[in-house]
């Protein structure tokens, strides 16, 4: 039987109207923007299923843009996100589509950054404001961002994982869960590592210094009620 916090039941604090279509959407976009890592100048949202059908009525569109602007799901500026994005010169495109056999509340982000590079991230809003990232640049993944998460892409050579875990050990960070995804031996691997405590930028930087690393991002869980 699952255990619940009282704040799962009386909570979360959020901007309405829907935890899955609004709060979850904002959170998804915020995590996607973190993964994309860089100043976003253009955001295209491919909306699937229920997201495609009801995004206007639920404010899913505004929530997604708010997330790209790094707002939290309870930020009252969320409903003005279009205006704010325009002010920052970010181009926004919504495209209803069919992403195949995925959760009904799924969106694919195509995020173009200042340097011209593009990140493709797909995620689902799975209920109660909770999310699941399912694909990063064509690499299947599965993590929720509920716990401090370290996302690393690196050349898949022997010893990389042990170098990474020794950095965490030195920093006294306990690994709760770790998964490695890869397309083939010796190529690029993606690791999603969940930790028991916050992974600071300083720690992320140390991991970036491991020479096989291509990119490293730390995604820390949102701390509710800081507004």
């Amino acid at each position: 039987m699952q255990d619940y916090s009282v704040f799962d039941i009386v909570g979360p604090i959020m901007i309405g109207p829907s935890s899955s279509h609004t709060a979850g959407a904002a959170r998804l976009a915020k995590v996607a923007a973190t993964i994309a890592d860089g100043k976003i100048i253009k955001a295209e949202f491919l909306l699937h299923g229920s997201f495609a059908e009801t995004y206007k009525g639920h404010g899913t569109d505004k929530a997604l843009v708010a997330g790209i602007l790094a707002m939290e799901p309870w930020d009252e500026r969320l409903k003005d996100s279009f205006k704010l994005a325009k002010g920052e010169g970010i181009e926004i495109i919504f495209t209803p589509t069919d992403l195949g056999e995925v959760h009904p509340n799924t969106v694919k982000f195509i995020l173009t950054k200042e340097d011209g590079s593009v990140s493709n991230i797909t995620g689902s809003s799975i209920g109660g404001g909770n999310i699941l990232i399912i694909d990063i640049d064509g690499q299947e993944v599965a993590f929720t961002g509920k716990y401090p998460t370290l996302l690393a892409q690196y050349r898949d050579l022997p010893g990389v994982i042990s170098k990474l875990s020794s950095v965490l050990y030195e920093e006294n960070i306990n690994i709760a869960n770790m998964r490695v995804y890869r397309n083939g031996k010796g190529k690029t691997a993606t690791m999603a590592l969940e930790a028991d405590s916050i992974i600071t930028e300083v720690v992320a930087e140390k991991i970036r210094n491991i020479k096989e690393m291509n990119s490293v991002q730390s995604i820390n869980p949102i701390v509710e009620g800081v507004f």
């Binding site: 909570g11 979360p12 309405g16 109207p17 935890s19």
Partner: peptide, 21 residues
């Protein structure tokens, strides 16, 4: 109504039922 207007509420237990508690 605040929920439906994209205002800030507490889901309790859900956003749809946020008025009752």
């Amino acid at each position: 109504e605040v929920n439906a207007a994209m205002g800030r509420i507490v889901a309790c237990p859900t956003a749809g039922s946020c008025g009752i508690l």
